[in-house]
């Protein structure tokens, strides 16, 4: 939903909110609550904690409104605040299990629903390779991939959330793409086609012009 038109809508909402119009906050909330909730659930299984943190993010948004500027990117601002909040909460409560730092925290990136089942139809070797490739991703790589392919963020936005420079975040994702692509892109065209078909079964009619 981030067409140019929506981006200008978003800007308008933000401006109105900064000028003191609280009515638009509910709209900002509705637009972002699901992506925030999903992003939050990648850091922890504790859904109530995620909700508490979302609550805190919006409350502090109202408190700190006068410090914010019109050029801020709302979505990015919310994602960043939520991440910071959750990690600091996790540090407080989960310190015995694992020492968290601002650069070292778990991030959950799982196959899509039914993906396991679909991959079962694939030959054993290829499936293993794909699973291994997914598992060998670093936590930061997973987060970068998530932000890119689930949230649809641009590289600059990803760098901001990961505290990396543009080149590094691009490289993180690039390496991961290459790895998977090499497994899929084998001389055996048949497997490639087959894999494509099964993966594509559930999706929108992207290739409806195909014969």
């Amino acid at each position: 939903m981030h067409t140019v038109e929506n981006k200008s809508d978003e800007r308008l909402l933000w401006t109105r909110f900064l000028k003191g119009d609280n009515q638009v906050l509910s709209l900002i909330y509705l637009q972002h609550s699901n992506s925030l909730f999903d992003y939050g659930c990648r850091f922890t299984n504790d859904k109530d904690l995620v909700k508490d943190c979302i609550q805190e993010v919006f409350c502090s948004l109202m408190r700190t409104r006068h410090n914010l500027s019109e050029t801020d990117n709302i979505r990015l601002y919310l994602l960043k605040s939520l991440k910071r909040k959750i990690i600091s909460e996790l540090k407080k409560h989960n310190s015995q299990t694992r020492i968290l730092t601002d650069q070292d925290y778990p991030f959950d990136l799982h196959w899509s629903e039914n993906m396991d089942e679909q991959l079962n139809d694939l030959d054993e070797e290829k499936r293993q390779l794909l699973t291994d490739a997914m598992q060998s991703l670093t936590e930061r790589q997973k987060e970068a991939i998530y932000l890119r392919f689930n949230r649809g963020l641009e590289y600059e936005e990803i760098s901001f959330l990961l505290n990396l420079n543009y080149q590094s975040s691009r490289a993180l994702i690039h390496r991961a793409i290459e790895k998977l692509r090499q497994i899929i892109h084998v001389p055996n065209k048949k497997i490639n086609q087959y894999l494509f078909c099964i993966l594509h079964k559930r999706s929108e009619p992207v290739f409806e012009h195909e014969n």
């Binding site: 699901n34 990136l109 998530y146 689930n150 892109h185 494509f196 993966l199 999706s203 992207v206």
Partner: peptide
């Protein structure tokens, strides 16, 4: 394009929703 789409699908995960 197909190959890019396949990689995308592998990386795209299910979302938690309220």
């Amino acid at each position: 394009i197909k190959e890019a789409t396949v990689v995308f699908k592998l990386f795209h995960s299910n979302e938690e929703k309220l």
